[in-house]
Design a protein around this nucleic acid. Structure first.
Length: 866
RNA sequence: GCCGUGGUGGUGAAAUGGCAUACACGCAGGACUUAAAAUCCUGUGACUUAACAGUCGUGAGGGUUCGACUCCCUCCCGCGGCACCA
């Protein structure tokens, strides 16, 4: 009698059993890992636990990560595979506001849902390492890190125009503003507002953030996005004397084609313009009026209109002239909105022959357009049309001492010359801006700083950490741009540590990125159980026998240690050799947010000598988004959301896992297709039935009786899955196992079982990372194994795989005409050529003609006929 | 415009110099069934052909090679990112 495949009958049971026996626990960390390859820190980007529960997109990411973790575990590596919760931030708070609940109460409920769902999917996390970023025991460290960064001069408070979201009522970082000028979280239009803000000097690390990308095994696109975002540019700042007044305008340029400079343009926000408007710099009255009118118009434009490409150039003459150093000519100064105040110096030298924007501007205002660089075909004529503009390449002309020199060399020579003369100075600029780090919201880590009128800003003492976020009734954002904490006198009022006078606490909170900037460090040493501190002990090796819990030794747990430099060092020292992260899997949307910020914190901690590595994530892989069946984003409002729970109910967790790994390459965006899910379900079910039959008849065959061809196929499948998983090619792993199953089933019909028990177990083992429930159920209850399949050793195939029979394609003039079956003893050129010529189809093309033979042994034979 | 990435059956896709379309979905026909579902079997790139078989075929065009989805050159299109960045 064969049991029908009913996943609901055993999946839950195994979750409990694995937990009870600690199959996935990391009780020991090897302090002296001999081979670096032996440790694998396998991490998925931890989730923000929303009220909606787990999304099928989460399932894809976490299943892939879980497959990698299980693979290495079975291959004898020490694996750290943790999970936690990133629960601070706007989405949680906005949801709480909507539900009229305190986020402090809501978050634990959501976590419970998430955790339950994750367990039902069989992810092999060590839950002892779990933590929540909103836990005071966690964020006391986030606050402590803030203080360390403050002390090393990386944080300062300043009042400046920042991006402000009127809907979320908070300031934002550059990275959180989308290209269309909206907030990446809520989609609302961003405004500029003057607010005092804590600012992180990430720009100080721009160069290292750029150069250290070099050694990372990350997707090219993400590396490129970070490079773009950092936006390093090397050029020169040139000082122009304004005629007849005591004022200089500084222009930044990467390509100083100065013999071609015929005007200067400055941004409407430029200091010169401000001085003109304040009449500190006198210009003719008609120019003054025009400038005033233009600036009012230009600054009234929306940010978006202002940044639109290809719109017609506008601007007005200021009435002032500057002197071009190289030819002492007077060139007019214009104000225009195509020059951006935030880029370079906010002023640009116009070289219309060799810059498209300058060309358009010069055409519109009838300014001279000299040619100082030849065209790509050596053209030297006048520049009339846009096609004539040469932006790089070519050879210098009409440029005095530069004539005849290539463009690139001339730029270098000009810069040397200008520096020598004291006219300019080489500079490096970056697109990266300092990171606005305060939010005027309730749901974040309180910033541990106190302000005294006499003594200024000072951090709170370590002993007072955590500075707890008060539990309050009203936490909704205020209209004034101030944090909700500012209306709680008990929180605000304190005493200055320096002078003992009255002082006020900072009431802004940290952005949602703070907690995730160091969580991967925490996983390496975190243990939520106060008594179970075995992780701090050093061990020679991690054998499966030593996986049992050690309860005799007691050391203060990670979470109970008060924050201090010595305790942080202790935690890092005791964290074993887990860090840095070896495998990091998650979405590409964090390219210039979380991934940049985390890298920055790690570098700062390295400089503080608190870490001995410079990059947090050695290997990064992105998972593609799952769209709904209608090819749109899954969304409640479209009613097209697929819930993992309902899929598990109907098909079981294994089928869901297999489907999500099989549906497409891991990093590719893909639409959900319930029809396709059926195929994965059938696959799982067919394996179930097959093994059930095995035991029903108690018939494994002996090694001698095995179907040799089937064994070869199995060996090839093992090889394929073994090499595919670390390449994150889960889809082809599964396809190859499906191929094997097809062949095995065919054999079953004809000649019994085909495989020995040993080989039948191997197939189950390579399937185990993908379908942990069913494989465990068969492993223990059908094959009667004692230990978990997930702690068994990954099967290997030694030596060369020997195929008895080969199929060799026969080509004539490179065209396939026939195929030839030969035994592996008959693959010499002579035999194959002779046999191939006996083939009727081949005869037809080759017979009685002169021919040449190309033969790749065992692979292909090609007859070249004239 | 620049950077990245991709273009292969009705669909998701596989093959990184050697039998193009593996694997899966869908579809068609058949078996089982009173019937349906489930399951199983067969077929399934296009065109020509009664059939045998042949021709064409991996976005387009060229090249290298005995042989190209794969390498090189030119171009077109989709997706993602950046962008009046001086």
């Amino acid at each position: 009698m064969v049991d029908r495949y009913q996943p609901s009958e055993f999946e839950e049971k195994w979750v409990e059993e694995w937990e009870k026996t600690g199959v996935y626990k990391v009780h020991k960390v090897i302090k002296s890992i001999k081979s670096v390859n032996k440790k694998q820190y396998v991490l998925a980007m931890f989730p923000y636990p929303s009220g909606a529960g787990l999304h099928v997109g989460h399932v894809r990411n976490y299943t892939g990560t879980d497959v990698v973790a299980r693979y290495f575990r079975m291959n004898g590596h020490s694996v750290l595979h943790p999970m936690g919760w990133d629960a601070f931030g706007l989405p949680a708070e906005n949801a709480a506001v909507k539900a009229k609940k305190n986020p402090m109460d809501m978050v634990p409920e959501h976590i419970e849902t998430f955790k339950k769902q994750m367990k039902s999917l069989g992810f092999s996390y060590d839950w002892d390492r779990e933590f929540t970023t909103t836990d005071p025991n966690y964020y006391k460290w986030t606050q402590w890190l803030f203080i360390q960064f403050y002390k090393m001069g990386l944080l300062y408070k300043k009042n400046a125009p920042i991006n402000y979201c009127p809907k979320c009522k908070t300031g934002l970082a550059e990275e959180e503003v989308l290209p269309d000028g909206t907030h990446e979280r809520c989609g609302n239009k961003i405004e500029k507002r003057d607010l005092p803000q804590w600012v992180f000097k990430i720009t100080k690390y721009a160069d290292r953030l750029l150069s250290d990308l070099e050694g990372l095994d990350w997707p090219k696109g993400i590396l490129e996005m970070q490079r773009n975002w950092i936006g390093k540019k090397e050029g020169i700042n040139i000082k122009y004397q304004v005629s007849s007044i005591k004022y200089q305008v500084e222009c930044f340029t990467t390509t100083p084609v100065n013999f071609g400079a015929t005007f200067l343009v400055v941004a409407p926000e430029h200091e010169l313009i401000k001085k003109i408007l304040k009449k500190e710099i006198k210009v003719p009255e008609s120019n003054y009026k025009e400038v005033k009118k233009y600036v009012e118009w230009a600054t009234g434009e929306s940010e978006q209109d202002r940044l639109k490409v290809n719109k017609e150039k506008t601007g007005v003459f200021t009435g002032l002239y500057a002197i071009n150093h190289v030819n002492k000519k007077e060139i007019p100064i214009y104000v225009t909105d195509f020059v951006l105040a935030t880029v370079g110096t906010g002023a640009v030298q116009g070289c219309p022959g060799h810059d498209m924007r300058d060309f358009e501007f010069a055409k519109k205002f009838n300014l001279p357009i000299p040619r100082v660089v030849t065209g790509l075909k050596g053209e030297t004529g006048s520049i009339e049309k846009t096609e004539d503009v040469v932006e790089h390449g070519g050879v210098m002309v009409n440029s005095d001492f530069l004539n005849g020199i290539s463009f690139e060399k001339a730029m270098k020579k000009t810069m040397d010359y200008f520096e020598e003369k004291g006219w300019g100075k080489r500079v490096t600029t970056y697109h990266l801006r300092d990171w606005i780090f305060s939010r005027q919201r309730y749901w974040g880590e309180p910033i541990p700083m106190v302000n005294c009128k006499k003594c200024g800003w000072n951090p709170i003492p370590e002993s007072e950490l955590p500075l707890k976020l008060p539990y309050v009734k009203s936490y909704e954002p205020t209209e004034t741009g101030e944090s909700p904490l500012s209306i709680i006198p008990e929180f605000v009022n304190t005493i200055c540590l320096k002078c003992g006078g009255k002082a006020q606490r900072e009431t802004d909170t940290m952005p949602n990125w703070a907690g995730s900037c160091w969580y991967f460090l925490a996983f390496a040493f975190w243990n939520q159980h106060e008594d179970s501190a075995a992780q701090f002990l050093s061990h020679e090796s991690l054998t499966s026998a030593s996986r049992g819990p050690l309860e005799s030794e007691k050391i203060a747990s990670a979470s109970s240690l008060p924050p201090s430099i010595s305790n942080f060092k202790l935690k890092i020292e005791n964290s074993g050799s887990w860090l840095p992260v070896d495998w990091y899997l998650g979405g590409a949307e964090h390219a210039v947010l979380h991934l940049l910020y985390s890298r920055f914190w790690v570098k700062a901690l390295y400089d503080l000598k608190l870490l001995n590595f410079k990059e947090p994530f050695l290997r990064l892989r992105n998972q593609g988004m799952i769209l709904a069946e209608d090819h749109r984003k899954m969304s409640k409002s479209f009613g097209n959301v697929i819930s993992p729970d309902s899929v598990i109910n109907e098909f079981g967790a294994d089928a869901l896992r297999i489907y999500e790994m099989f549906m497409a390459p891991f990093n590719q965006e893909i639409s959900w297709a319930t029809k396709s899910l059926q195929g994965s379900y059938r696959f799982v079910k067919r394996i179930w039935d097959l093994y059930q039959n095995y035991v029903g008849n108690k018939n494994f065959c002996s090694v001698q009786e095995e179907d040799k061809q089937l064994v070869v196929k199995l060996q090839k499948t093992i090889r394929k899955v073994t090499s595919d998983i670390p390449e994150v090619k889960f889809n082809t792993s599964i396809a190859s196992m499906m191929e094997f199953l097809n062949e095995w089933e065919k054999t079953l019909g004809v000649m019994g079982y085909g495989l020995s028990g040993k080989n039948a177990k191997m197939f189950l083992q390579i399937l185990a990372p993908f379908a942990p429930f069913m494989t465990e159920e068969i492993w223990k209850n059908v094959l009667r194994e004692k230990k978990s399949i997930h702690l068994s050793a990954w099967p290997t195939v030694e030596g060369e795989i020997v195929e008895e029979e080969l199929i060799i394609p026969i080509q004539v003039n490179g065209k396939l005409r026939s195929t030839l079956r030969v035994s592996r003893y008959e693959i010499s050129k002579d035999i194959v050529e002779k046999k191939a010529l006996q083939d009727e189809k081949v005869k037809k093309y080759v017979e009685a003609k002169e021919y040449k033979v190309i033969y790749v042994p065992g692979k292909i034979i090609n007859f070249i006929v004239r």
